[in-house]
Simulated assay, not measured.
Amino acid sequence: MKNALILAFAALMLAACGTGGTGGGETMSLVGFAVPKAANNAIQKAWAKTAHGKGVRWKESYGASGDQSRAVVSGLKADYVHFSLETDVTRLVGAGLVTADWNTGPTKGIVSQSVVVLAVRKGNPKNIRGWDDIVKPGIGIVTPNPGSSGAARWNILAAYGQVLAKGGTRQQAEEYLTAFFRNVDALPGSGRDATTAFTGGTGDVFVTYENEAILARQSGEDFDYVVPDTTLLIENPGAVLKAAGPKAGKWLEFVLGETGQTEFAKKGFRPLTRIAAVDVPGANDPADPYPVPKALLTIAKDFGGWDKAATEFFDETNGVITRIQKQAGKS
């Protein structure tokens, strides 16, 4: 009898562990790139107030987008991923972890969006107004490393694409990037690490996501930022894995709904869908936080999509950006 009671108790404990602890709540694993953690956490709190989200517990892992994607392929548990680049999700498709139709919904698999901006020191002492100013002699640039960071790839393509948008040639765009990398003071591993470097005093200008600049200012950092006349729309994908728990699909629906997108907007991301007006502390104009740039480039329209852009610009052997980085000694 004593042995039977012990076995029954053990079975109950195993069942509790399998459902995420007491109360029968499901445990979900979120793996993402570093930048949207604050927004995802805010959405999780809102979701917890709903019938589907009540009792759900979270295990989270955040870091550089490419590193996180490779970690999931190598066995890091994930029910839902939120990455910087489409290619970091398609890597999971190739590994059989995400279905091939992950990007066929109304938002094409995108769950958050922003634009590339230029963060500058308070009062803008170097008078940086746009892309031409940051390649002048004596300007120190901070941007994450495109070898590990998805944020960096958006930044670098924005810098390249703005030359073409003004009527420049591909050769002139490469010359611009050569000057750009010549001025780089720091290439941290992730977008969040780059923010830390800049706010710690490195460089004169930080090429970053608009939402990262806004969130840093919400957190007490004191710097300015400039939305260039020509910039690039940043589109971050999210996907549910094949082996995900039963509530993961409901989570994704919530993320894409009005409440989820409102929480993204409050943390500096431009909402994917129409939401009620919100004030966004940290934005240049909290009441009108997301002005429309004069020219907004997109990966699909201006670079032929991420599959093409990843090969052309970031191939480890022959990519345009890879070559320029090596030549500048900034790999």
Rank of each mutant, 00 (worst) to 15 (best):
M1Q: 14
M1P: 12
L7D: 13
F9T: 10
M13Q: 08
C17V: 14
C17F: 15
E26N: 08
L30W: 07
N41A: 13
I43Q: 01
K45C: 01
A48Q: 06
K49W: 05
A51E: 11
K54P: 04
W58D: 09
S61E: 14
A64F: 10
A64E: 04
G66M: 06
Q68V: 13
R70L: 15
Y80F: 12
V81Y: 10
L85N: 00
D88M: 09
V89C: 04
D101G: 05
G105Q: 10
P106C: 06
T107R: 04
Q113H: 09
V116M: 10
V120S: 03
V120E: 04
G123P: 02
P125V: 06
N127M: 14
D132P: 02
G147C: 12
A151Y: 00
Y160G: 00
A165C: 05
T169Y: 12
Q171H: 14
E175D: 15
Y176G: 00
F180C: 06
N183E: 07
P188S: 08
G189D: 13
D193G: 10
T199N: 09
G201W: 12
D204G: 05
V207A: 08
V207P: 03
T208Y: 03
E210C: 08
S219V: 03
D222V: 10
D222E: 15
L232H: 03
A239M: 09
L241W: 00
A243I: 06
A243F: 06
F254M: 13
G257A: 07
G260S: 04
F264Q: 05
F264C: 04
R274K: 15
A276Q: 10
A277R: 15
P286A: 01
K294H: 07
T298I: 06
A300L: 15
A300H: 13
N318Y: 13
N318S: 15
I324E: 02
